[in-house]
């Protein structure tokens, strides 16, 4: 079977299009590349959606944690503490069993699927981590900026929208870039927690470990997986670097801060 044929059969295997049966013997390099790459679709799906939605929740949580009244501040603090203080792996398990009991009660059965349920957990998780980052950035907004806004009579929502929020983004962005990479890596946990893999439609790590189990040779699938992840991590760094340039474009050239990529490694 030619490589082109393999790509046709397996490139979209992880979302259920193409050949139904996974290869069982005589694994070729092409099959491993194609299937693991096909699994990346899910990693990208989880990462992109979680980051997009989590970003807005994170902003809200950061502002909430900085708020005066305790009835807003405390829930935000607890939200951040719970999601940052416990392992993501346990969160997946716990959430899955909650969703299971909700399903038994007759509501929202779709939440027990990985595509929806795990996404919810990832959204909340990244919201907590980025919320803490944005909170730190919000606290670091120079006092002069706020005083200037007051002097111009800008207050309330416009002050937040036009003064605080852009500065908060600018200050928090390098750390947020790390968080994005870190979340992208965390997506590999989804199919190894409680969430079921229907019809062997898994993510990249799922297929990599499938090959490693079948061939007893970890030295081929895992480096392929690593290659894919390094590639996409570089893509994230590039993309977020562009946004960083945009956020810093009004600053004098030498005081612009480049991105320092120091991923937080694991949650």
């Amino acid at each position: 079977m030619s490589c082109l044929q393999t790509i046709q059969d397996y490139a979209l295997r992880s979302i259920g299009i193409g050949e139904r049966l996974l290869p069982r013997s005589d694994f070729t390099l092409c099959q491993q590349f194609t299937l693991i790459g096909s699994g990346m679709i899910w990693n990208i799906y989880f990462a992109v959606l979680a980051l997009l939605i989590g970003f807005f929740i994170a902003s809200a949580v950061a502002v909430g944690k900085n708020a005066g009244p305790a009835w807003i501040r405390k829930p935000c603090e607890w939200f951040i503490f719970i999601f940052r203080g416990s392992p993501l792996f346990i969160q997946f398990f716990f959430a899955y069993f909650i969703f299971l009991s909700i399903k038994k009660a007759g509501y929202m059965p779709w939440l027990t699927s990985a595509q929806a349920g795990a996404l919810v957990v990832l959204i909340l998780n990244t919201a907590a981590y980025s919320g803490e980052i944005f909170y730190g950035a919000l606290r670091a907004v120079p006092r002069g900026d706020v005083e200037a806004a007051d002097a111009y009579g800008i207050s309330g929502w416009p002050r937040f929208r036009r003064i605080l929020w852009p500065t908060m983004m600018r200050l928090g962005w390098p750390a947020y870039t790390n968080e994005a990479i870190f979340l992208f890596h965390a997506t590999t946990l989804v199919f190894f927690s409680a969430f079921p893999t229907l019809g062997q439609r898994g993510d990249a790590l799922y297929y990599a470990s499938y090959f490693a189990d079948k061939t007893f040779n970890p030295f081929i699938p895992y480096p392929i997986l690593a290659g894919y992840f390094i590639l996409f991590s570089l893509l994230i760094i590039g993309l977020f670097g562009l946004i960083n340039r945009h956020l810093n474009r009004h600053l004098p050239q030498e005081s612009r801060r480049g991105l320092r990529i120091r991923p937080n490694l694991m949650r």
Binding site: P218, A226, P263
Partner: peptide, 20 residues
């Protein structure tokens, strides 16, 4: 090796690789 690659991939890799 800490950068760019998910950590559980390392865990799953090293356990088999070290054993072999």
């Amino acid at each position: 090796i800490t950068r760019g690659v998910p950590d559980i991939a390392f865990f799953m890799f090293f356990v088999i690789a070290l054993d072999q």
